[in-house]
């Protein structure tokens, strides 16, 4: 077993049972933990449920091909997951397409075990260097960060994507856990912009995308919000095992207590209710808190154990 292989998990994807078996054996003999999938759909399901260090995937598979799989991984799943593609064909176009889609490596069948192991070792080495920030955060008792967003540049900020990368890669949080936090962040910042900062009504919020953008841009041009900001606070406490995320705006605030009471007492869904966001935050957090007359909302979650 090499230093690189210790506790590393590889997903092998091929529609050929014998190839999955033989590659799996090579990897297991070299100390890797191996899981397998026999088509692209199963592979996507597995990467959405488990964390893998590397995926070794065949290109020519019925249904979702290796190229389709890689494209989906990059667009919708784990942008940074290392994927080695393999093919029995010597087609240069395949190679170019694979590189463009972001394949970590490209190897030809029949697989030579030395080449495969070398490729995986090189990828893991590269990843280890990349993971320095993640290692840094793992070594702390905790950290507190505040990000102050300029509402005028809200749409350019790419807040969702930035926090997705930060939670997943820098803080190394598990996918499902990070996804739930991302939904909460999305909920909180969107409310902070639409209601808190721009003072738009519920009806205006549900305008078509183009109409809403026009309205928002109009408000931004009015210059009434130049002094306003949206503050995102992140408190990571590794010692006590929790993460708190807060979002605060400079708006009017709202009567959060009566909204919470109403949500808790309602037995049937009200299609006109506009407390779903709070209800979701309540459901997705271990603790939900409002301060500053509803201008600041904080969610707290216990960190997963392992």
């Amino acid at each position: 077993m090499t230093q690189d292989s210790a506790a590393r998990k590889i997903l092998v994807v091929d529609d050929s049972v014998s190839i999955v078996f033989s590659i799996g054996k090579i990897l297991e003999l070299n100390g890797y933990a191996v899981d397998s999938a026999y088509n692209g759909s199963d592979a996507l399901r597995k990467i959405s449920q488990q964390v893998f260090d590397v995926v070794v995937c065949d290109i020519e598979m019925p249904g979702i091909s290796g190229m389709n799989f890689l494209e989906k991984v990059r667009d919708e799943y784990d942008h940074d997951l290392d994927v080695i593609l393999m093919t029995g064909y010597l087609d240069q176009d395949y190679f170019i397409q694979a590189i463009r889609l972001g394949a970590s490596d490209f190897i030809r069948k029949p697989i030579e075990s030395k080449q495969l192991l070398h490729s995986i070792t090189r990828i893991l080495e590269r990843r280890r260097n990349k993971n320095d920030i993640s290692n840094f955060f793992q070594c702390l008792h905790g950290s507190r960060m505040v990000f102050e967003i300029d509402p005028m540049r809200f749409w350019q900020a790419g807040i969702g994507k930035t926090f997705n990368q930060f939670l997943r890669q820098s803080l190394n949080l598990k996918r499902n856990f990070a996804n739930e936090l991302l939904v909460c962040i999305d909920e909180m910042i969107y409310n902070a912009l639409i209601h808190g900062t721009l003072s738009l009504s519920k009806e205006q919020r549900h305008l078509s995308h183009d109409q809403l953008r026009k309205l928002v841009n109009g408000r931004l041009e009015e210059g009434l919000i130049t002094d306003k900001s949206i503050r995102i606070g992140l408190d990571l406490n590794l010692k006590d095992g929790f993460i708190s995320i807060s979002v605060e705006d400079d708006g009017e605030g709202f009567d959060h207590e009566s909204w919470l009471r109403r949500l808790q007492s309602e037995q049937e869904i009200n299609l006109d209710a506009h407390g779903r966001g709070i209800s979701m935050l309540y459901h997705l957090s271990d603790h939900l808190e409002f301060d500053n007359n509803g201008r600041k909302v904080t969610i707290t979650r216990a960190l997963p154990k392992d």
Binding site: S48, E180, V183, Y190, R205, L271, R276, G277, M280
Partner: peptide
């Protein structure tokens, strides 16, 4: 099945459509 989460904005769109 492959939708990993929905925000309240997404739910709102579905409910408006539902009506």
């Amino acid at each position: 099945f492959d939708c990993r989460n929905i925000s309240s904005t997404g739910i709102g769109k579905i409910l408006l459509f539902y009506k």
